[in-house]
Design a binder for these strands. Structure first.
Lengths: 246, 246
DNA sequence: TAAATAGTGTCTTTCAGACAATATCTC
DNA sequence: GAGATATTGTCTGAAAGACACTATTTA
């Protein structure tokens, strides 16, 4: 172990350091985000309030910030290797009553099918909340602001990336993917143009025909790269050119 | 003042928290970034190495991370209100020999004309380095990685935003702006298409004709909003669709 | 008038959007 | 065949890229 005495030159107060997660999925035709309840124990800030899942960085266990995020995500959802992207950091004297704190926010996309209702064997009660409804809740800390930034980033990127593909279990069909886009964007997109764009981008590989409940079977696809989304040279509807994340 | 005793439940070791800056400007037809030399004092990590400007968050002085970034930027360059954007955060057990540390990286764009050579009345020797050359130096900490991320973000965003306008002193002309784009992108862009795009985006206001050394005077422009860049619905050259930041 | 730089016009190609038509499955 | 869903084809309009042309200054 390392010596516990603070080296000279470093004996000044340090901020609290946390990692928070905005975990998205699409379920029941709606974009949902995972919220947890703050504990009610005495001394806890924002008791009983809804908050983003997260917590302090454990410098004994976590080798890096991303490791910490991945660990917390796995604890909450049971999902091991989702799409995970850094959203940004928020820090200041006022955001946590326990003192100057800085949080590193990540956002994750997980397939709807990966969510058994009670999954994530963790203590705090968690709930999948519709994104629009979640922004209207008065969340703990500055989590309302972080959530809003995450939704803006997701919506913005969906206009010109293949991000929604990470919200679907594989293999998926083009109509399913289109539906996911429409749910996240909140508007309909043209079928023909959509298919041309997706197929031309070349980020999917065919994975055999999939039977459907009714109608013609659809081609199934898998992602060629589960780590990085494809980027399109144009946004979907030029009429509302919206900003990218960050 | 607040009690100095650590409240119960918070008595675990905390990471070191820093802010680092990637400060860009365009000067002498090149994209440049500000580097500083690490001190040579004993106990200092990476003595004598080049590094990004930055340092520890001072929880007494800095109300927030952005405040801290703005303060350090002003100390180094004398520039008060530049374009400042969060780049991301890097944290882990290995990046600083003094212990588990997390840095919040920002990137700033400042006009070339704002740089008197010796400006920024600060101790450490600082130097404007060509961006490409800076990436080849062996920087302290993980600053090489941070710098690479900043350059990628800048290049990516320049494809579809008005960011280069923040690298010019006002008022500026369209040919000057085009030249700045070309310096950052490292390739020529078509004059006609460029002008159409910039003028249609409507982020500039006319500011009177500017005399030039030779040739016809050019219209001067000012930014309507010095805080936010304009976003174009398409990238410049569809042939290389490149990713946005973050 | 020549040189230099700023600004505009025109043509072509590309491609998203709209929407109609066709294909393939179940019942 | 009817209904449902998947997939493809065709037309059109808007806009970017290429590039030639015009405009306004100084020497």
């Amino acid at each position: 172990m390392k010596p516990s005495a603070t080296p000279p030159g470093l004996d000044f107060p340090r901020p609290l350091v946390t990692v928070d997660l905005v975990i998205f999925t699409v379920r029941d035709d709606a974009l949902k985000v995972l919220l947890v309840r703050r504990p009610d124990a005495p001394g806890e800030p924002f008791p009983g309030r809804w908050a983003l899942p997260g917590g302090f960085v454990d410098i004994e266990r976590d080798a890096s910030l991303v490791d910490c995020a991945r660990r917390k995500l796995h604890e909450k959802t049971g999902v091991a290797a989702p799409y995970l992207e850094q959203l940004g950091s928020w820090g200041g004297a006022q955001r946590d009553p326990r003192g100057w704190s800085a949080t590193h926010a990540f956002f994750a996309l997980i397939p709807g099918a990966d969510l058994a209702p009670g999954q994530g064997a963790h203590a705090a009660p968690a709930e999948w909340t519709e994104a629009a409804a979640a922004t209207r809740k008065r969340l703990a800390f500055d989590h309302g602001e972080i959530l809003a930034a995450a939704i803006a980033r997701l919506r913005g990127k969906v206009e010109y990336t293949s991000l929604p593909a990470f919200l679907l279990p594989e293999p998926f069909t083009l109509p399913q993917l289109q539906h996911t886009y429409e749910v996240v964007l909140g508007r309909a997109v043209d079928k023909s143009a959509f298919r041309k764009r997706m197929l031309d981008a070349g980020f999917m590989a065919e994975a055999g025909l999939l039977e459907r409940a009714a109608g013609r079977p659809a081609m199934g696809y898998r992602l060629r790269d589960r780590a990085q989304p494809a980027v399109f040279p144009r946004t979907f509807s030029p009429r509302d050119a919206e900003a990218p994340g960050a």
